[in-house]
Amino acid sequence: MSDESAEGPVEIIQCPVELDYTYTAGQATTRFLRGVGEGKLLGQRCIVCGKIYVASRGACPIHGVPTGPETVEVSDKGTLVSFSIVRIPSENLSVDPPFAAISVLLDGSDSTFMHVLSDCPLEEVRMGMRVEAVWIPKEEWTTSLKNITHFRPLDEPDAPYDSYKEHL
């Protein structure tokens, strides 16, 4: 046997990768973030089907055409259409686990939106639940989704399944 086999294979090497990127939001996301900076959630409409996308990246993914440039303000209240209970901590999260990651269909929007649900016992989280955004104090607003800390339950009856079944 050779010396190499006696020592065994090299199983780990360290190869740190650090690359810096400077992003530009693009036209559609810029329109959305400018709205967020003023406390508004702005949707953008497909010129073919009229669907309104919130946090549009500039295209209707169904028709492959540009959205906008006019914007449509949608509500910061909506219906929870899906959720997952997160129990694994991550340094990038502003909330402590366990918490509910949720998909919200904002009133007036045709696309869902990911955020976090809080102020609610986890065993009560359910599809159809009515929720609203909780904003940080106005004087702290920037052009960032961090303006919304989380969503919380609304004291309203659950939305009927048919009203959100296309968004699961």
């Binding site: 530009t24 939001a25 693009g26 036209q27 559609a28 996301t29 810029t30 990246r57 500039g58 295209a59 492959g64 055409v65 540009p66």
Partner: peptide, 26 residues
Amino acid sequence: REQNRNEVEILMPVVREARERSGIAH
């Protein structure tokens, strides 16, 4: 440097132009 457009915003008009020029429907 495309300062104002993301990848999709750069791509969309190009795909549309190629399609229209071909006369082949989506």
